[in-house]
Amino acid sequence: MEKREYRVPGMHCPNCKIWLEGLEDDLPGILQIYASYHQQILRIEFDDHLVSESEIIRAANDLGYQLLAE
């Protein structure tokens, strides 16, 4: 199990939270996901046997968000 926290400077309104947290429906192996517009962060816990970090970053990219390592 892996834990990551990213800065997401592209979040421009609270609804971005909804889109980003929607990753848990798009990807397998997401155990916990939390996004905050106020803090501009994404916190994620995932099972690295089912999904890789690069897959997560790519999926977020497809939604229009760039994830930057803390």
Binding site: C13, P14, K17, I18, E21, G22, D25, Y34, S36, Y37, H38, Q40
Partner: peptide
């Protein structure tokens, strides 16, 4: 940014 409310997660999940 704090002038908008961040809806609670259970709600956003429901909305989504």
């Amino acid at each position: 940014r704090y002038f908008t409310f961040e809806p609670p997660r259970s709600l956003t999940r429901f909305i989504r």
